[in-house]
Design a protein around this nucleic acid. Sequence first.
DNA 1: TGATTGACCAACT
DNA 2: CAGTTGGCCAATC
Length: 114
Amino acid sequence: MPLKESFFDDVYKVVEKIPYGRVTSYGAIAEFLRLRGSARMVGWAMNASHTSNKNIPAHRVVNRNGLLTGKHHFGGPKVMQQLLQSEGIKVKDNKVVKFDKLFWDPKIEITKSE
DNA sequence: TGATTGACCAACT
DNA sequence: CAGTTGGCCAATC
């Protein structure tokens, strides 16, 4: 067991903790991990999550604008939107409706007990 | 080993 | 308002 797992695992932990019917952004995760500016790495982690053994609800992770940028990486451009809608999240024009209300900030929800 | 890219973001021009 | 650039780190070519 490596003490310091890949930064990917940190991302996975956060993403897995995203509650049902909620969404977050790459930047929020990156910022939570003190990797502000490295939001691209979060995207990389998501890309790896697709091949990872763990089941990562990457469909709950969207860009800062609530736009379903990575929908194409789910195996289909419709998959991500359907997954979100299946969780009660309304998606319109490739973006999450009321994203600001559904937005789940890890640095608040997780570190709030810190 | 160096250069390029990648599901991003923010600032600058 | 749209296009460019810088930034961060890791993986691929």
